[in-house]
């Protein structure tokens, strides 16, 4: 790892200030991606801004939505009784990320800000019509994810929390890579009174995306048969050593069926 400096921010405005006064400062949340990246010398920030003391942890039930602090660990979301009651699919998703030790350190905000194309959380934010709350503004999920490892976040912006709308019914189904446990394909299906949202992670060349054909089919008929009637195209899907685009396209249909029938 290159040498760097660590600043412990006491609140998000102090964190933003520290970024402003650094050349290439980076926010350090749980560090589950950033620290391995630094160890491989793939990044060389002059300053790491540790936001673990900014009071950004916790789960709050807001009635029609659940708001979760950016620094809330995956293990805490997985074990939260209010998340389990309001959106059990979200607790399941958090409990299936990485392994126990990754869940003990990894955070919601870190995962969402990184927007890894195979990360689980972005699919939940997208399918549960989420809102990303930063120190400056509220960003809807549909405007937040901008492509592989890209988000709408600006340099002087820190995620403080994320809100998820409570669905009537939801389920996340992941086909994990057996070594990394990242999603080879993960599908989050959420049924709301005014329609169904289907978000796919692990598959798109541009990262997480909503599948409009599956959404309209499921909105008119919430069943496995409706999914069978949709031809999932492999256009724009990733091909790599783990799976071809065609294989991923097939998995999208399969994971959607499992999510619908669970």
């Amino acid at each position: 790892m290159y040498s760097t400096k660590i600043v412990k921010a006491e609140n998000s405005s102090a964190a933003v200030q520290a970024i402003g006064s650094s050349k290439e400062g980076k926010i350090l949340a749980g560090g589950m991606t950033l620290i391995p990246t630094l160890k491989q010398r793939l990044a060389n920030p002059d300053c790491l801004i540790d936001i673990s003391s900014c009071g950004l942890e916790g789960v709050e039930d807001k009635g029609s939505s659940v708001r979760i602090g950016a620094m809330t660990k995956h293990a805490a979301v997985a074990e939260s009784s209010s998340v389990a009651k309001a959106i059990p699919a979200l607790a399941d998703l958090a409990g299936g990320i990485g392994d126990r030790q990754v869940r003990n350190r990894g955070t919601l905000g870190g995962s969402v800000a990184n927007n890894d194309p195979a990360a689980c959380y972005p699919s939940a934010v997208m399918a549960l019509d989420g809102t990303v709350h930063t120190n400056k503004r509220d960003i809807s999920a549909d405007d937040f994810f901008k492509g592989m490892f890209e988000t709408a976040l600006e340099e002087d912006e820190v995620i403080e929390s994320v809100s998820f709308k409570k669905p009537e019914k939801a389920c996340y189904m992941k086909f994990p890579n057996p070594a990394s446990r990242y999603a080879m394909v993960g599908v989050f299906v959420a049924k709301f009174s005014d329609g169904v949202r289907v978000a796919v992670t692990g598959a798109g060349e541009e990262g997480v995306f909503r599948h409009s054909d599956l959404e309209s089919a499921l909105s008119s008929n919430f069943s496995e048969e409706a999914v069978s009637g949709v031809e999932v195209s492999s256009d724009g899907l990733m091909s790599d050593i783990h799976a071809s685009a065609d294989y991923r396209a097939n998995l999208i249909g399969e994971m959607t069926k499992r999510a619908v029938s669970s």
């Binding site: 660590i6 560090g31 620290i35 790491l48 126990r100 030790q101 990754v102 003990n104 350190r105």
Partner: peptide
């Protein structure tokens, strides 16, 4: 429990 190789 944490992985001490992935924490400063």
């Amino acid at each position: 429990s944490v992985k001490a190789c992935t924490m400063l």
